[in-house]
């Protein structure tokens, strides 16, 4: 089974490259039973949306009000 530390790396890399099928299956199996890593995934996804929102807010005419 993947360790939590390995999962943190896969969660981050999943935002930067397409994970392989094997990686995804192992990741999902781990997330099913690990609350800390499930929280970690939500936080990683949140960081991505917060960055997108920050950029929209400061650089676009519509002020990112979406």
């Amino acid at each position: 089974m993947l360790s939590c530390k390995e999962v943190t790396h896969l969660l981050s890399e999943g935002l930067d490259r397409k994970l392989t099928v094997v990686e995804r299956v192992r990741l999902e199996m781990h997330l099913l039973i690990c609350g800390g890593c499930s929280n970690c995934r939500k936080q990683m996804d949140f960081l991505r949306s917060a960055c997108r929102r920050y950029v929209a807010k400061h650089t676009r005419d519509d002020d990112g009000a979406r």
């Binding site: 530390k5 800390g36 890593c37 939500k42």
Partner: peptide, 24 residues
């Protein structure tokens, strides 16, 4: 944050942030 076996220390794992989108 991790034990020697690379799993989270009992009180060091990522917390539930509730509804973080509300913060935006």
């Amino acid at each position: 944050l991790f034990k020697p076996n690379a799993h989270w220390q009992p009180d060091q794992g990522p917390a539930a942030w509730g509804d973080p989108e509300a913060a935006l």
